[in-house]
Amino acid sequence: MRQKSKVNNNGFIDENEISNRHAAIWLGTPRGLDERLAGEDHSSRRASFVGLSNKFRDSAAWHGPVEDLKGDEAVAMLRLPNEEPDPSESKVVIALNRRTTTEPASEISPEVMERFWESCLNRLQPTALDWLKAGGTMWDHLKLELAPEWTAELLGLEKVDADIERASQAALFGALATRVSPVDLDTVLYALGIFIHTHPFFADAVRKGVWHLPYGEDTVYTVTKRRMR
């Protein structure tokens, strides 16, 4: 079961805890971007500029101190880095043949993968609701025009409607635009594609394909340390 931290009286994660995991960081002037992001201090640097939208202040949990900036203003939405230890680091999921493997039964039992996967999920940080809306809002504002065939090819789709294209591009752009560290867009795209190809709602839109287990029903998955060369 997922372990919740700092729950409120209703049994849900405290909204303040979720909001504190994100920071709308002011960067001063556009030229100060590289200098700010190159620093090791990712703590929130929040300010109340004259031109900053009040609605943005509210949805981004923006608060003082008040600072009057002379010249250009630049704001970046950056998700704070997850400082919890990553249980998947230096680990790799492998498939073994249940009938021929020499691994001890205790190492390939379903409980091993269950414990590993739960530890991975427990490390994930809930995202504040308004921040989940950020990608779509920014993408709509940009009004970028892409050929539908481009999205269809990336996601393995037979056809792409406006809703699928908007949602997929918003997911990719939102992940990139709120990063505090390098983002592997290929991995984001892969996860998005798996979601689409797995959910029955998109069954009529995806291209037909199949994945076979390496050893058929004798396949057993476990996790092991990655050997570094």
Rank of each mutant, 00 (worst) to 15 (best):
Thr151Ile: 04
Pro65Asn: 07
Ala128Leu: 02
Arg166Gln: 03
Leu155Asp: 00
Leu124Ala: 10
Pro126Val: 04
Trp150Tyr: 14
Val75Trp: 06
Leu80Gly: 01
Leu155Gln: 00
Glu83Trp: 10
Glu149Arg: 13
Glu111Pro: 05
Leu80Asp: 02
Arg99Asn: 15
Val160Tyr: 00
Asn97Tyr: 06
Pro85Glu: 07
Gly156Thr: 03
Ser109Cys: 13
Ala128Glu: 00
Glu89Asn: 15
Glu145His: 12
Ala152Met: 05
Asp72Gly: 06
Thr100Val: 11
Glu111Arg: 09
Ala95His: 08
Leu96Lys: 09
Val112Tyr: 09
Gly64Ile: 08
Ala74Ser: 08
Gly156Asn: 08
Leu154Asn: 07
Ser106Cys: 14
Asp140Leu: 04
Val93Leu: 12
Ile94His: 06
Pro110Tyr: 10
Phe116Gln: 05
Leu78Arg: 03
Arg123Lys: 11
Leu69Cys: 09
Gly64Trp: 09
Leu78His: 02
Asp86Cys: 03
Pro85Lys: 04
Leu142Tyr: 13
Asp72Gln: 10
Val160Cys: 01
Gly64Ala: 10
Ala76Val: 07
Val75Asn: 07
Trp139Pro: 01
Lys91Glu: 08
Leu132Val: 11
Gly136His: 07
Lys70Gly: 00
Lys159Ala: 01
Glu165Cys: 02
Leu69Glu: 06
Ser106Arg: 15
Glu149Met: 11
Asp163Ser: 06
Val75Thr: 08
Asp68Leu: 13
